[in-house]
């Protein structure tokens, strides 16, 4: 392995080791919420919602819920989790006294968040599949999608963490960025036919594009439009990673 990835991987492996020792206890806490949404909205609210684009309401929201887990898992991990390692526990200080650089540390954190988010996506996918809401074997692509999108949301959150002076900042981030993304990214209603402002707003939200890819995978309707969404997700991920790395280098004084 190249030395660069060796450092990043050591950091990711440290976090995965800690997660593994608590994994069983944390699975439900990490990934249980989307299931609640599926039950309440999909099967509760869904009874009074007419079929959308040939899908029941539960079928319509399932792909979005799978990737909303990705966003929440990665974001929690890279806000509260990373801030604790950085400012409370001294874990980052200890790491930075070794050959690991701030950039490598940042990459390691993002890889870890991507893996954890990908696992979360698969966990929710299995539940969704058990309810018969998966129509295509293309759904296996939720794993790589979950990893990449996990890195994307992780990088946004980590960029915020590197400019935060306390946990307070994360309340704002969750209220002003994460919650709107959850509600307006086309998980719960089709963006086609929405007011123009909402359509435009949704296009700048990374989660919108991730939801579209996820829906194409679960339904087996992967076409040119979905490919464009994949390209947008990849481009946003590159931008986010560059931003997070720059934030880490600045904050960590190298």
């Amino acid at each position: 392995m190249q030395p660069f990835f060796r450092g990043a991987w050591a950091v990711a492996a440290r976090n995965l080791r800690v997660w593994r020792t608590m994994a069983l206890a944390s699975v439900l806490g990490n990934f249980g919420e989307p299931i609640l949404y599926l039950l309440a909205m999909g099967f509760g609210l869904g009874r009074v919602v007419p079929p959308l684009d040939g899908m029941t309401y539960a079928e319509f929201i399932a792909p979005g819920l799978v990737v909303s887990t990705v966003m929440y898992t990665a974001t929690f991990e890279m806000t509260y989790g990373s801030y604790t390692r950085m400012a409370e526990q001294g874990v980052w200080d200890a790491i930075l006294a070794t050959p690991v650089t701030p950039t490598e540390l940042c990459m390691g954190e993002l890889i870890y968040a991507g893996v954890k988010a990908g696992v979360g996506a698969v966990a929710v996918l299995l539940v969704v599949a058990a309810f018969g809401l998966v129509q295509s074997p293309l759904a296996v692509f939720v794993l790589p999608l979950g990893f990449v999108a996990g890195v994307l949301f992780a990088s946004m959150a980590l960029a915020v963490t590197t400019v935060s002076k306390s946990y307070e900042a994360f309340n704002y981030y969750f209220t002003l960025v994460v919650a709107p993304m959850f509600l307006f990214s086309g998980i719960f209603f089709p963006l086609e036919g929405s007011p123009r402002w909402l359509k435009l707003f949704a296009q700048v939200l990374p989660l919108t594009h991730v939801v579209q890819v996820s829906r194409a995978c679960l339904r087996g309707t992967f076409d040119g439009t979905a490919a464009v969404h994949v390209a947008v997700v990849l481009a946003m991920t590159c931008g986010g990673v560059a931003l997070a790395a720059a934030g880490a280098r600045r904050r960590l004084n190298h």
């Binding site: 060796r6 080791r17 070794t98």
Partner: peptide, 11 residues
């Protein structure tokens, strides 16, 4: 584990 993990940072 503190020793094991720290050693991994040095490759």
């Amino acid at each position: 584990e503190n020793l094991l993990v720290y050693a991994s940072y040095y490759g």
